[in-house]
Design a protein around this nucleic acid. Sequence first.
DNA 1: GACGATAATCTCAGATGATGAGATTTTATC
DNA 2: GATAAAATCTCATCATCTGAGATTATCGTC
Lengths: 264, 264
Amino acid sequence: MSGTNSADRILAILDVFTEERLEWTPEELMAELGYSRPTLYRYIKSLKEAGFLASMPGGCMTLGPRVVEMDYLMQKSDRLVCLGEPYLQQLCDDHPASSLLVRWYGSKLLCVASECSTPNALSSYPRGRPMPLARGAISRAIMAYLPRRQLEPMIAQNLKEFASIGLGSTSDEVMICMKQIRRQGVAIAYGEVTPGVVGIAAPIFSDSNAPIAALCVTIEARETDEKRLERISDQVRAAAANISAELGKYPNQTLEEKPFRRQA
Amino acid sequence: MSGTNSADRILAILDVFTEERLEWTPEELMAELGYSRPTLYRYIKSLKEAGFLASMPGGCMTLGPRVVEMDYLMQKSDRLVCLGEPYLQQLCDDHPASSLLVRWYGSKLLCVASECSTPNALSSYPRGRPMPLARGAISRAIMAYLPRRQLEPMIAQNLKEFASIGLGSTSDEVMICMKQIRRQGVAIAYGEVTPGVVGIAAPIFSDSNAPIAALCVTIEARETDEKRLERISDQVRAAAANISAELGKYPNQTLEEKPFRRQA
DNA sequence: GACGATAATCTCAGATGATGAGATTTTATC
DNA sequence: GATAAAATCTCATCATCTGAGATTATCGTC
């Protein structure tokens, strides 16, 4: 399906650069990807010219500065990040905690912004770090609001995960949990991602539509009590709702186009 | 030259996403790039599958989360950033200033890390923001150490820039300035990038070889005097030298490969 | 829940541009 | 300046890319 067209073959080169392996020689890439020498060099040339790859002294290739530039572009333009940042700040001011903004994309959760008010950053999830799906408050805050036809297969697929967390051993039981989350407006998880850390997350909706992200506060269990938990829940729920609402309001640059599209 | 092969045509799609314009509909992309509908959709599909693009509600495309993830990878792996960070911190602790680490790539300067100890961030250059070439201390700190055959055409090309800064009106005069920078080990620029702000930069060398980056401190002119400027210069020069030296020491993951390569 | 409109994908022929073996040039190393 | 390694070039073959139009999926609306 993919790999037969050169588009995918080029992009596949970038895929081999992982957290474990960030430097590759052309020779190694040839071996790994199975491309011929001239082809590989052609691809590399294109990627280098575009700035996605860069040569290191020694002939090694690494990811190039274009990546940094693009991330800057995204960060500056991402409405979710821009709108969410003040809330992250506020939550950290009010509690000894970390606050994060996490996007849901495809089958991944990706932290796109975070703040922290505790000395040793609780969350090991700065911007750019993908998070485990189907574990923790964040994932459930989003899942709970997916349309049934997306939710059901997802539950079925991760049933053993859910069972191990104690959410229930059957799809129906898990569905009840999800329903409860919808009623509460927040998902709370005790030590699912990091032991001893509580996560409180609420979904953020795109355009009054589908859940696309979550706002989450993580706090040491021993720093919390029933009352604070409730207060955090209220704040997270409200903040997420506000962000969702503001996302609905189209921003300046697309103000002229969007209302038109909606009528048309 | 480029644009005739599909590698470049695909990557060209990512190029149209700029700070000014971060959302494109397929229709607009077709018009902008001149690709046919099926071709564009094919490309988009590949880019979306790879995570470089994402669909927004409304049909608009934006840069995708893969970009964020890749930047995280780079940041975590970039020896320059890892090694430099503590020095940035130190410099900001010692002075009411901004400190930045800037990479030189191709014909661009790109900030890859920055710290700031003044309330209102002096430098408007966070990670990812490209900087003007041929202006400011950073660019000169790097240029001065380029091999002559690279330096001379570059000077010739930017002669009017240099003249407007007051570095000299002929190549020879500029060359003398560069020589002086090499003697001093730092480049100092008064208000070239931002009015009223002094920049003090020293080059960082890859592998005891070519200048690949610069460490820079920017500070309000009115916060400085002759003495502090000298102290900053010394610190910047020393820090840059340290970073260069440490870059020379190969890191863990390539320890086995590199010494071999050098002998071979 | 069905309709209409728009968006996205598919089909398929032609031909253009991609491919890789090997030669050649460039670049680093001593 | 000589040697070895790395990167690029040449070119014939043919696979794969392309684009017009038809078709199907998706969305919003009633």
